[in-house]
């Protein structure tokens, strides 16, 4: 049943990517999903020094809100702190970006936006300038020194480059035209409305939208049912949605790179174990 690996793009825009991956097994696509969620690094605010905060939000809440702001990530010019040569808790220019937030309300109320953050690096800025951070009453002031770092989703959800990453089997719907009498019960029950009536027989449109819920099969009055919903064990519809921190194709690319490195590590340790066994065998 296994055919060669084949990937094609079903849908792509600034934040979404939908792929059809054929010729692989669940273990592969699931590892890809888990790597995208937990291993692909991205930039997020990690440390906040509060110099002054007279706003109504507590320091901790302010810091938490800042941490959740997605920042555009420059993976080529920054290193993960644990892999950086500086080995310091504070970080250096290669593994840390500093930002400043210094705002004071005048005589009127004001809203502090993510656009008010001043970054040292023009490549690492908030994804959107219109995220409200806090609202200030007249003469309230917020002055913060902020550090952003690269890290991974497994450390904190703020470092996840995606807000959605999921896959499903490629649906395959068969309708027995000899048995189907066009009663329409399956058409009405389908939550995705993918079945239509054509020439008194039911036919399928937009197969990819099928959620494999089997409601249409259960609704069919014929025994056995005239409609069958099956799926292809080696084909997957894989989709994810970027938070804006990284472009979608870069996320996929990095995920493959990490998976490659992991598998290489596994092979190396297997080879090492084999060698150790041989040495032991010679010794005894």
């Amino acid at each position: 049943m296994r055919n060669a690996l084949n990937v094609c793009v079903l849908q792509k825009d600034d934040s979404h990517l939908r792929l059809l991956i054929q010729g692989v097994d669940v273990a592969f696509v699931n590892s890809l999903r888990r790597i995208i969620i937990a291993e692909v690094p991205c930039m997020a605010i990690d440390e906040v020094m509060v110099i002054e905060n007279s706003s109504v939000l507590h320091d901790e809440i302010l810091a938490h809100r800042l941490g959740l702001i997605p920042l555009t990530t420059d993976l080529d010019n920054y290193k993960l702190p644990e892999e950086c040569s500086c080995k310091s808790d504070l970080g250096c220019k290669l593994c840390r970006v500093s930002l400043i937030l210094d705002v004071e309300a005048g005589d009127k109320m004001m809203i502090v936006y993510s656009g008010d953050l001043k970054s040292d690096d023009p490549n690492v800025i908030p994804v959107s300038n219109r995220i409200p951070i806090v609202k200030l009453a007249p003469r309230q002031k917020v002055k913060l020194e902020i550090y952003a770092r690269l890290s991974r989703g497994k450390d904190h959800a703020k470092w996840q480059p995606v807000s959605m990453c999921a896959y499903k089997y490629l649906p395959r719907i068969n309708i027995d035209e000899g048995k189907c009498d066009g009663c329409g019960k399956c058409i009405n029950i389908c939550p995705k409305r993918i079945l239509i009536k054509a020439n008194s027989v039911v036919s399928v449109q937009r197969v990819l939208d099928c959620t494999l819920c089997q409601d249409c099969v259960k609704a069919c009055p014929k025994k056995p049912p005239a409609i069958q919903v099956k799926w292809n064990e080696n084909s997957f519809v894989f989709s994810f949605e970027s938070t804006g921190a990284l472009p979608v194709e870069r996320i996929a690319f990095e995920a493959f790179k990490i998976l490659d490195k992991r598998l290489e590590g596994l092979l190396n340790s297997l080879a090492a174990a084999e060698r150790a066994e041989e040495v032991e065998g010679v010794g005894s």
Binding site: V56, L68, I69, S114, S128, N129, R130, E241, T243
Partner: peptide, 20 residues
């Protein structure tokens, strides 16, 4: 919840900039 959260609690999508 004094002010609109930055991200969706469940999936993590950015929603703060959409409130206004």
């Amino acid at each position: 919840l004094m002010i609109i959260p930055i991200r969706c609690f469940t999936c993590g999508k950015l929603i703060g900039d959409k409130w206004e």
